[in-house]
Simulated assay, not measured.
Amino acid sequence: MQARRIARELALLSISQLPATQENLEAQPLQNVVVAAVRTLTSEVQDALETASAELQQSNTRLLNSETRAADVASAHAMVTEALTLTQTAINRLGAAIELPEMVQLANQHDVRAYALEIIQTVKANRQEIDQMLTDALVDWQLGRLATIDRDILKIAVAEIGYLAVPQRIAINEAIELAKRYSSEDGHRFINGVLRRVVDRVRTESKSPQNG
C-alpha cells in the first residue's frame, strides 16, 4: 500500500512532464519520474512566492496611500493574509519536494516505478474515455476549466477505477488524500463529489439491460 500511495503521488506530480508515448514512458527510470515530480513542486513554490510577493507589494502601496481610510486598511490586511497563505503553501510544497525522494527510497522502488508508470500510461492511453466519464459527472463545471491538479487527481482516480481494477472506495479515498495534500482548501470535497457521481454512473450503466 505504501508503494502504491507514493506511486500515485509521483504520477500526479510528473504526469504533465513525462513523454506521452507508451514506448518512451516504459523507458523512463525511476529517477526521471522523481525529478519530474520535484520539478513540478518547485515550480509551484516559485509561482506561489511570486504571487505572495505581489500581494505584499500591493498591500504596502495601499497602506501608504490609505491615509488611514478603513476600507483601504481592511483591503491591505486581506492582501497580507492572502500573501501569508500563499507563502505557507509554498513552504508546504517545498517540504513535499524534499520529502519525496526520501519516501521513494524507503519504499519498494520497483513497485513504485511500475505502478506510477502504469497509472500515467493508462491515463494517457484512455484520455478520451476518461475525460468523457468526468465530463458526464461534472455539474456546472467544465473539465478544461478545473485547476490542473484537481483534473489530474480525478483522471488518476477514474483510471484506477475503470482500468486498473482498484476498488472504488480505495480509489476515492486515495484521491481525497491527494487533494488534501495538493489541492485548495475545499478541493477534497469537490473531488469526492465528482468521483462519487462517476461511480454512480458506472453502477447504473453496469445494471442497464444492454449490459446484463
Rank of each mutant, 00 (worst) to 15 (best):
N60M: 05
Y163F: 11
D131R: 10
R145W: 05
A96S: 13
T21H: 05
Y182T: 00
Q109W: 02
S43E: 08
I91S: 03
D186I: 04
S16D: 15
Q210N: 07
E205H: 06
Q210T: 12
V139R: 11
L41F: 10
G95R: 04
K124D: 04
I6D: 00
G95N: 09
T40K: 02
K155P: 03
D152K: 02
R189L: 15
A54V: 04
R93T: 05
E67Y: 12
G212P: 02
A27V: 01
E177N: 08
G212H: 12
T89S: 11
S66F: 01
E9M: 06
L117D: 02
V35P: 03
S16V: 03
S16N: 14
L63Y: 05
T85R: 14
I120M: 14
V166F: 06
G162K: 09
E129L: 11
F190I: 04
Q132C: 11
Q88M: 12
T204A: 15
N108K: 08
T21Q: 08
A83W: 06
V199L: 06
Q109S: 11
A175M: 06
E50Q: 14
E23L: 11
M103N: 12
L10M: 03
Q142G: 12
A171S: 12
V34T: 10
L10K: 00
S43P: 02
E82C: 05
L18P: 05
G187C: 05
K207G: 08
T122R: 11
M79C: 09
L41N: 07
E55V: 01
L117G: 10
V33A: 08
I172D: 05
E55W: 01
T148L: 10
E118L: 14
